[in-house]
Design a protein around this nucleic acid. Structure first.
Length: 217
DNA sequence: TTTTAGATCGTCT
DNA sequence: GACGATCTAAAAA
C-alpha cells in the first residue's frame, strides 16, 4: 500500500488514498505515528502525529462542523479524502483536519498534537523562543502555528507539495477517550472519539470545558 | 497545581 | 449579534 522509495526524503505521497475512504474511527490508528510535513520558503517542518480527534458527518455527530450540513466554511469536509480542512476559530486559532470518506461524505480527523521531528528551529521561530520542544506542536492551535498552516492551506491535497504525509502503518498501541472542548451533546463519554499514543509528552492535557466546570445553578 | 478570564474575528442565524 | 473542535497569563487554592 505504501510506495516507499529509496529516497524517502523526496517522497510526498507515502500513503494509499484508499485508506482515507473509510470512517475516521478506522483511520485514526493509522494517522497516529504518521508524519506530516509542510514546506515553505523558510524550510520544512515535519510532525509525528500523537493525538487526533474524529468528527463524523451530517446528522451522525452533534459536535461536528458538518452536523448541520454543508456550508461555505465546512465545504472542504464534503470533498475528497486525504485533503486538509483548515478553519479559523476563537478569533485567533487555526485548526487542521484530515478529510476522510469519499467525495460527498463529510468526516475528518482533527490534528490535536504531535512531536516536531524536523525543522525544530523553524517551528520555534514561529511559536516563540521560550517554547519547549514538547510544546511546539502540542494542541490544535499550536500545531498549525508550528507548521505554518493557515486558511490559505484549506483544501490542500496531502499527496502534493507543499504537503507530504508518510503513513507508517497501523498503530496498535493507542488509547481513546472523550473529546475536549465540545459543549453539550457530543462532548461527553458518549463519544470516545479522541485517540492518542500512550506516554507521549506531546499529547495535550485533558481539560474540562469551562462551562461544564461551573457549578450547576 | 488547578482554575479563570480575556483576547478576537469568521461564520452562521 | 452570538458564539466557537483554543491558548496563555495570571490568580486562587
Amino acid at each position: 500500500m505504501t510506495a516507499t522509495g529509496s529516497n524517502g526524503e523526496e517522497m510526498n505521497a507515502t500513503f494509499n488514498v484508499e485508506l482515507f475512504n473509510r470512517s475516521p474511527l478506522l483511520v485514526a490508528p493509522y494517522l497516529l505515528g504518521s508524519v506530516i510535513s509542510r514546506d515553505s520558503d523558510e524550510g520544512r517542518v515535519s510532525v509525528r502525529i500523537t493525538e487526533v480527534e474524529a468528527y463524523l458527518g451530517v446528522g451522525e455527530d452533534p459536535g461536528a462542523h458538518a452536523h448541520r450540513g454543508k456550508t461555505r466554511r465546512n465545504s472542504t469536509l464534503f470533498g475528497p479524502p486525504a485533503h486538509l480542512y483548515v478553519y479559523f476559530t476563537y478569533g485567533m486559532h487555526h485548526c487542521a483536519n484530515v478529510v476522510c470518506q469519499p467525495d460527498g461524505t463529510a468526516s475528518g480527523l482533527l490534528l490535536r498534537g504531535g512531536e516536531v521531528v524536523e525543522g525544530i528551529e523553524l517551528a520555534r521561530s514561529r511559536r516563540g523562543p521560550r517554547v519547549s520542544d514538547r510544546n511546539l506542536a502540542r494542541g490544535p492551535g499550536c500545531l498549525t502555528v508550528a507548521m505554518g498552516i493557515d486558511l490559505a492551506d484549506n483544501g490542500s491535497d496531502l499527496s502534493k507539495l507543499p504537503f507530504a504525509l508518510n503513513v507508517t502503518g497501523d498503530t496498535s498501541d493507542y488509547l481513546s477517550g472523550p473529546r475536549t472542548g465540545i459543549n453539550g451533546p457530543g462532548g461527553t463519554e458518549e463519544y470516545l472519539f479522541r485517540f492518542w499514543i500512550p506516554n507521549e509528552p506531546t499529547v495535550s492535557a485533558y481539560k474540562r470545558h469551562p462551562k461544564l466546570a461551573r457549578p450547576i445553578a
